[in-house]
């Protein structure tokens, strides 16, 4: 991994068009500003990982879909009757 030291308000460039600026530094938290083209999505890594995990779980889950549909229908019925 490439490691670069940067001061406040300094930045790095990735490729031609992605810029990451150090916006503030407080204790152990760093705020970064990211300038990137619209087709590049930027996310916190832990959120990205969690969604990836959940997609895999969804692809592998083999619970009873018809039962699920029935339960949901029943719930709407119950709500109507309340």
């Amino acid at each position: 991994m490439l490691v670069l030291a940067r001061h406040l308000n300094e930045s790095i460039i990735i490729g031609d068009d992605i810029e990451i600026v150090v916006v503030s530094v407080q204790h152990d938290q760093v705020k970064l500003g990211i300038k990137a083209p619209r087709n590049i999505s930027v996310h916190r890594k832990e959120v990205y990982d969690e969604i990836q995990r959940e997609n895999r779980l969804a692809a592998d889950a083999r619970g009873d879909l018809s039962k699920g549909a029935e339960l949901l229908k029943q719930r709407f019925k119950d709500e109507k009757n309340q």
Binding site: V47, I51, E54, N55, L57, A58, A61, R62, G63, D64, L65, K67, G68, L71
Partner: peptide, 18 residues
């Protein structure tokens, strides 16, 4: 929303964040 239906379908979840 992508749904996960586990062995107990009562606990089915939907991904509303993504």
């Amino acid at each position: 929303a992508i749904v996960v239906i586990p062995d107990d379908p009562k606990l089915m979840t939907a991904n509303l964040q993504a």
